[in-house]
Design a protein around this nucleic acid. Structure first.
Lengths: 121, 121
DNA sequence: CTCCCGTTCTGCTCAGGGCGAAACGTCCTG
DNA sequence: CAGGACGTTTCGCCCTGAGCAGAACGGGAG
């Protein structure tokens, strides 16, 4: 994937070395996906190496996916989902729900932050 | 994206020339995403070239994304979502909902098909 | 200490992302 | 009818980054 034509509307979260913390606004797809996959794996009490093995990918690569450092192909997404005994639908729904709750949490945090600022002023 | 390590669990929908029709089971992420993006764009009554222009990508590429022929990078996904005045959350939710309804439709179709088979027998 | 796990680093190959040019299909107008 | 405009798809290409293997590192537990 070439980043030659970096779109202007893209958030400034293009540094793959940075943690996937949602900054002002939205994370990138790979961040959201990766976090969700890691949570789902943890929910199953599974080791990264086991899941990677079942998905047919390298542990290093699964680690990178989970940390939002790579944009996996659709086939890879399907493989990892399959290794977690999920369908793409399950996975997408889980990502969507996480994004929703993160959004809500961010809204609350922003509100609290504004209140604190008002009190300080 | 190398497909050197083609995972065994991947569906056989690796031929990018094929339409994104969900076959037995789940579509790939890029198919689901593309369909959803095209629907969202149509819902807004927008032309492909306008959306592509606002997203800062070529019209040809947006066409390919919509037809599930490419796995766009996270930044591209964000750019197209932005051009449609959506957040990643909005988009992921929309994809998830579409996947759910397709799954439901597929289940109904399978049930009807089984009933028809029982009647024929 | 060893063992296990997860992560990072390094270096590598080559597939495909993303593009520009060209082609195609559809619709409208003279 | 031909020609033009518009939207979309196809084709060919460059070069970036996906995905890998091997090695090393850091942390925790026994």
């Amino acid at each position: 994937m070439a980043e030659t034509a970096a779109p202007d509307q893209a958030p400034d979260e293009t540094d793959p070395k940075r943690p996937e913390a949602p900054q002002d606004g939205e994370p990138l797809w790979r961040d959201a996906l990766g976090e969700c996959l890691r949570d789902l794996r943890h929910d199953r009490g599974e080791k990264l190496t086991d899941t990677a093995g079942r998905a047919g990918i390298s542990p290093q690569y699964l680690s990178e996916i989970e940390r939002g450092m790579k944009d996996p192909s659709s086939e890879m997404i399907a493989a990892v989902a399959g290794a977690l005994e999920l369908t793409l639908t399950d996975l997408t729904v889980a990502v969507a729900e996480r994004l929703r709750s993160v959004q809500f949490t961010a809204s609350v945090a922003a509100y609290v932050h504004r209140s604190a600022y008002a009190l300080a002023a």
